[in-house]
Nucleic acid binder design. Structure first.
Lengths: 152, 152
DNA sequence: CCCGGTGGGTTGCGGATTGAAACCATCATG
DNA sequence: CATGATGGTTTCAATCCGCAACCCACCGGG
């Protein structure tokens, strides 16, 4: 696993001590995580991202640049010809659990019981089970069994 | 675990089939997840949310209403006296893994090696270990070992 | 009864962000 | 040379956001 550190979008963070806030400063907008989702699903070109997300082109330009500047995407010229390619860096790939938990929450809470939705499956076509936070001792953790310890 | 279904913010979704997109339609903005984070950390009153997040008051009004309308928060009159209280619903509490993965990504990628940050600890004060997606057979899953299966 | 403080907002305004659509430059192909 | 794909930029209108000011109900004290 990589530990690439990302730089701030601007000199200041919304809440400099909180990792949640810092992450949201980087990807907490309407589109960035959908771009990352599509990158995980194989999209690499400007046009492909645009087609999949339906995002406005100027905004896509901006998001791709920001994600690149923050080290989540890397821009390369494609091996063949003169096309651009945006590929996930290690830091970008490490957003997988974030996308997964968003997906699992959505599957559970954002669909009526009759509605169908796409599903994440493993190599054998088996649906990925729900992820559960566990402590060092293997016990299930929730909001009642954890708390934030402020930095000393 | 609850399976409360949430209703759309407007009649249309960004991408009706994708649970990730639906979740982001509900909480994918600058502030909603920070409000949820603070709710998990014990905030209940308007003033307390305002103080912790630093969000503008009119925007906070809007976010609290939207989160309430979407079923992530419930508004109650406090048992004592005449104050308002916003408490997480089951659906809101189930965002815990989302907040946790955002936190863990931030801890890893959004801080320089010297910087300190707040930490999530369990009841014993032990830091919560990194969450890892595993398949039904217990193997570790990543973006190379999974794919999205479109709804039939 | 008047005064100030607290909680929970609303309103108005200017500036930043967004979305839709048009435009453009560079290839590659027919 | 015309056409189409790719990867943008530009323009303009609409929306959103942050800030500051204002509002109002309730409470406790004097």
């Amino acid at each position: 696993m990589s530990h690439t550190t990302v730089r701030a979008p601007n000199p200041v963070w919304t809440d400099p001590d909180c990792p949640v806030a810092r992450t949201l400063d980087l990807v907490g907008d309407r589109w960035s995580l959908l771009v990352v989702r599509d990158a995980m699903d194989g999209a690499r070109s400007f046009t492909e991202f645009q087609r999949r997300t339906g995002i406005a082109r100027n905004i896509l330009t901006d998001r791709l640049r920001k994600l690149t500047a923050h080290g989540l995407l890397a821009q390369r010229t494609a091996p063949t010809g003169r096309r651009q390619e945006y590929v996930l860096t290690d830091a970008g790939r490490n957003l997988f659990p974030v996308i997964l938990t968003l997906r699992q929450w959505g599957e559970r809470h954002a669909f009526a019981s009759g509605e169908t939705h796409s599903t994440l499956v493993d190599r054998h076509g088996t649906p990925v089970p729900e992820i559960a936070p566990t402590g060092a001792d293997g016990t299930l953790l929730g909001i009642d069994s954890t708390h934030v310890q402020k930095t000393r």
